[in-house]
Design a protein around this nucleic acid. Structure first.
Length: 480
RNA sequence: GGGGCCGUCGUCUAGCUUGGUUAGGACGCCAGGCUUGGGCCCUGGUAAUCGGGGGUUCAAAUCCCCUCGGCCCCA
């Protein structure tokens, strides 16, 4: 039995809304604040497994977790001119305390560069203290005026994992941006989420950055989704706030900074990339339950009781070995009904135990992705389980990358690229001379967004706008 | 930024065009029974001041205005 991907691919938006609500992941649109969603217990566990993973990756590379205040005074936020210009229209302001109007209003942080820079200037005075890498996992707020969407475009980003670093030189900071991209690549590789790394065009870089590197993936409907960004901030913030450190030669300089972040969108992607018409398929590393055990009742109460006891043994064997597992022993649902429920929740492995398994001393393992099953001896359970998990993870990753590569296509002229994008084909790549004016022209002509260019230039043919020899390619996509 | 669609039990919805019903159904939930290798079936019960505010009217879920929220398309 192969599960179709009809709903998943042709009506993704509906599929996604259906999954997050029916699988009890995220309740959106019912809490009475526009653009806000509620993480429900099951969704929270996915989120927690994801944050634990990124925490480990950041901790292991010398990042230190901190927690800054949610409120940023107006004066501080406005210190860096370019930065605030980029955000101004999206800031939520706290203007009152009780009845009284505040003397200085507070912003709900849209991101934390200025706040962190201020404290860094107090903590870090000399080059011997550099580099320093901080991160925090917090809510940030953006007053989105466009249509909001669950998890993908929200006003409160509830799981913003933002890192901020300080360095002595431009080169050190540039290296840090490279490390950030590496960390994120590793993160998405572990999750089996495919991506492209692009240098964002000048006109679309982070407000107050030298340059921005971004990771984009493609959702089932063919739109590109930004899932991670890393910015070289240069001395923009340290100069604006006149923050200097002393170098070895005694001179005082404005240090260089970087910042990089990933949001709730990771989880949206995680749910979407490996979906089918029965729901999502969660990779075992972050699935709240790696397996669900479903007992199949026997002919008599006595048989059923034996089967339940057997199922309980299987459960404790798995738990003892550190496997996250749940036993669905509820008697009010038929096994078939349970299959549907747990498939909708994306549990990667289902374990069925009934009369057959009890008598043979086996358990029946069934993969969520292919619905292929096999009976394994109880004694071999752990070994077989681990193997199967590895196989599923590898297959999911492989399939995701295959479908991703099929959706990244190169074109030599704009008309074909436009046709591809209009049909929600994915990401188009076209030769480009390197000039901003030609890039902007492309956005206008194809009515899509320029994602940027590969870090390692891939010249091929002539610029699709001006016809001059290309210096690189430019990636274009319909975006969220 | 521009255009369109929508809001009725927990959920999905009928009713709105043409104002007057006890606001109907399905799913869920609760109680019980029967089943159980892919959402089974039966009985009974629960539940909506019709998103909010104002107006028109003898009478508003229904017509008008404002507002809040959701969805889609275009820039």
């Amino acid at each position: 039995m192969k599960i179709s991907r009809e709903k998943w691919s042709s009506n993704f938006s509906e599929w996604f809304d259906w999954v997050i609500s029916q699988a009890e992941i995220y309740d959106y649109g019912r809490y009475p604040v526009k653009g806000s969603g509620v993480w429900m217990p099951y969704g929270f566990k996915i989120r927690q497994n994801v944050t634990n993973l990124i925490r480990k990756l950041l901790d292991d590379t010398g990042h230190e977790e901190v927690l800054f205040p949610l409120l940023i005074p107006e004066g501080l936020l406005k210190k860096e001119g370019e930065h605030i210009k980029g955000f101004e229209k999206e800031v939520f302001w706290v203007t009152h305390g009780g009845e009284e109007e505040l003397e200085e209003k507070f912003a709900l942080r849209p991101t934390s560069e200025v706040a962190i820079t201020l404290m860094e200037s107090l903590w870090i005075k000399g080059y011997t203290q550099l580099p320093r890498k901080f991160y925090q996992i917090v809510s940030v707020f953006r007053y989105e005026t466009k249509a909001t969407r669950p998890m993908i475009r929200v006003r409160e980003l509830t799981t913003f994992k933002e890192a901020h670093t300080v360095h002595e030189t431009f080169e050190d900071a540039a290296k840090q941006v490279d490390e950030a991209v590496e960390i994120y690549s590793r993160f998405f590789d572990i999750l089996g989420i495919p991506y492209l790394i692009s240098r964002r065009p000048e006109w679309d870089k982070f407000a107050g950055a030298e340059y921005t590197i971004a990771l984009d993936t493609i959702m089932p409907d063919g739109r590109a989704l930004q899932i991670g960004t890393a910015h070289h901030l240069g001395q923009h913030f340290t100069k604006a706030m006149d923050y200097k450190v002393q170098r070895a030669d005694g001179s005082h300089v404005h240090p260089h900074q970087t910042s990089y972040g990933i949001s709730d969108r990771v989880i949206a992607t995680l749910i979407s990339i490996n979906g089918d018409d029965h729901g999502p398929i969660l990779p075992p590393v972050v699935a709240p339950f790696e397996a669900v055990i479903i007992p199949i009742p026997g002919k008599t109460d006595e048989d059923t009781e034996k089967i339940n006891r057997y199922a309980g043994e299987i459960e404790s064997t798995l738990k003892t070995n550190g496997i996250r597992v749940t036993l669905d022993a509820s008697e009010d649902k038929t096994p078939g009904e349970k299959y549907y429920i747990w498939e909708l929740k994306g549990v990667p492995i289902r374990i069925e135990v009934g009369t057959r398994e009890l008598n043979a001393g086996t358990v029946f393992l069934k993969r969520r992705d292919t619905l292929e099953g096999k009976a394994v001896k109880k004694d071999d359970l752990i070994k077989e389980f681990r193997n199967l998990e590895d196989q599923i993870s590898a297959d999911l990753r492989k399939r995701a990358w295959e479908q991703f590569r099929e959706r990244v296509k190169r074109f030599q002229n704009l008309d074909e690229a436009k046709k591809f994008l209009d049909n929600r084909g994915g990401i188009a790549e076209v030769p480009w001379c390197g000039q901003d004016s030609c890039g902007l022209k492309i956005e206008e002509e194809v009515q899509a967004r320029v994602l940027g260019a590969p870090l390692k230039p891939e010249p091929s043919g002539n610029c699709v706008v001006c016809g001059k020899p290309s210096t690189n390619i430019l990636r274009i996509a319909k975006t969220y």
